[in-house]
């Protein structure tokens, strides 16, 4: 993470960054519908613990996933500072709870390094690569693939998962 200018090739894309415990992640900004506070979630029976339940988002029933629980990165605390990122992935609206939302950054394609064999808490198949901004390492996540994966138990007929 030294020569920043060397890799400024390719079109610049924007990413929303957020933190989960000590790690900083980035997702494609175009997948983000809105960011809102955490309130009034209706728990759903027989679903994995990281699925907090559903909320009423202007008339639509939207499931809320707590990534902190899913990836065991930090203790889930729900207070007025808890942030939910509402995502629009694969024609679905899904909310994810994270520790905090940092900012929106632009990254050139050339600035993204291939992911290492181990990808933080996320399986490498959901990682797009690693990016560097101001000496911060960002883990770029393919959020669409992650949210539609079997692991997240958000799509598909079964609600089986860890209880």
């Amino acid at each position: 993470m030294s020569h920043e200018n060397e890799a400024q090739a390719g079109p610049i894309r924007e990413y929303l960054t957020f933190t989960l415990g000590p790690e900083e992640y980035a997702i494609d900004i175009l997948r983000v519908q809105e960011i809102r506070g955490y309130d009034q979630v209706t728990a759903i029976a027989n679903t994995p613990k990281f699925i907090k339940g559903v909320i009423n988002l202007r008339g639509a029933i939207v499931p809320i996933v707590d990534l902190r629980i899913k990836f065991k990165l930090s203790e889930p605390v729900y207070n007025q500072f808890t942030v939910v990122i509402i995502l629009n992935v694969a024609d679905r609206v899904v909310g994810v709870v994270v520790d905090s939302v940092s900012d929106v950054i632009g990254l050139a394609e050339g600035a993204i390094k291939p992911p290492p064999e181990f990808g933080g808490a996320f399986d490498t198949q959901y990682l797009l690569g690693l990016g560097t901004v101001d000496e911060r390492m960002l883990i770029l996540v393919d959020i669409e693939q992650l949210m539609t994966s079997q692991e997240m138990a958000l799509v598909g007929a079964s609600a089986e998962g860890e209880n």
Binding site: Q40, T42, I44, A45, N46, T47, G53, V54, I55, N56, G59, A60, I61, V62, P63, R92, V93, V94, A153, L154, V155, G156, A157, S158, A159
Partner: peptide, 21 residues
């Protein structure tokens, strides 16, 4: 629409206070 079918649950509704039941 945004989630999937859950065994034992036929659907959801929005209550007067805006919460989901």
């Amino acid at each position: 629409q945004n989630f999937h079918r859950i065994h034992g649950v036929a659907g959801a509704t929005i209550m007067g206070d805006g919460s989901v039941a």
